[in-house]
Simulated scan of single mutants.
Amino acid sequence: MKVVRFHAPGDVRIEDAAQPGPGPGEVLLRVRACSTCGTDVKISRFGHHHIVPPRVMGHEIAGEITEVGGEVSGWDVGDRVQVIAAVPCGQCDECRRGRMTVCPNQTSMGYHYDGGFASHVVVPAQVLAVDGLHAIPDGIGFAEASVAEPLACVLNGQELAGVGEGDDVLVIGAGPIGCLHVRLARSRGAARVFLAELSARRLEMAANLVKPDAAICSGDADLVDEISKLTNGRGTDVTIVAAASGAAQEQALRLAARGGRISMFGGLPKDDPTITCDSNLVHYRELTIVGANGSSPAHNAEALRLIASGAVEVADLITHRLPLERALDAFGIVARGEAIKVTIEP
Rank of each mutant, 00 (worst) to 15 (best):
T107V: 12
Q82A: 15
Q91I: 12
C95R: 05
M109C: 07
R97K: 14
C89K: 00
R99Y: 07
Q82V: 14
R97F: 02
R80V: 06
T107A: 11
P104T: 02
V83T: 08
A86H: 11
C89V: 04
D79C: 10
Q82K: 08
P104R: 09
I84Q: 04
C89W: 06
V87L: 03
P104D: 04
M100W: 02
C95M: 06
P104F: 05
D79S: 03
M109T: 03
V83L: 03
C92K: 01
V87I: 15
Q106A: 13
N105D: 11
V87E: 09
V81C: 10
M100C: 00
G90A: 03
C103G: 04
V102E: 01
R99I: 07
C92N: 04
M100K: 12
T101E: 13
G110D: 10
M109N: 09
S108F: 15
T101G: 00
Q106P: 04
M109K: 01
G110C: 02
D93S: 12
G98P: 01
T107L: 14
Q82E: 12
R80I: 03
C92Q: 06
V81D: 06
R97E: 15
C95N: 00
V102G: 03
A86D: 08
R96L: 13
T101F: 02
Q91C: 09
Q91K: 14
T101V: 05
P88Q: 07
T107Y: 07
D93Y: 15
V81Y: 04
G98V: 04
R96W: 09
C92W: 02
G110F: 02
N105W: 02
A86N: 11
V81H: 00
D93M: 12
N105S: 12
V81S: 02
D93A: 15
A86T: 11
P88D: 07
A86R: 13
V83W: 08
D79Y: 03
D79I: 01
R96T: 01
V83F: 06
T101M: 08
D93T: 13
P104V: 11
T101Q: 12
S108L: 12
G98L: 11
I84M: 01
Q82T: 12
R96I: 05
C92V: 08
T107M: 15
C95T: 08
P104S: 10
D93K: 14
V102P: 00
P88T: 05
A86V: 00
V102K: 07
N105Q: 12
P88N: 09
D79G: 09
M109L: 12
A85D: 03
C95H: 02
Q106L: 13
E94P: 01
V83N: 00
T107D: 09
N105R: 11
M109I: 14
R96A: 11
T101D: 11
G90R: 04
V87F: 02
A85G: 04
D93E: 15
V81I: 05
P104C: 01
P88I: 06
P88E: 06
C89D: 06
G90E: 11
D93H: 14
V81G: 01
C89H: 08
A85W: 08
C95P: 09
T107C: 09
V87Y: 01
G98T: 01
T107P: 07
R99C: 00
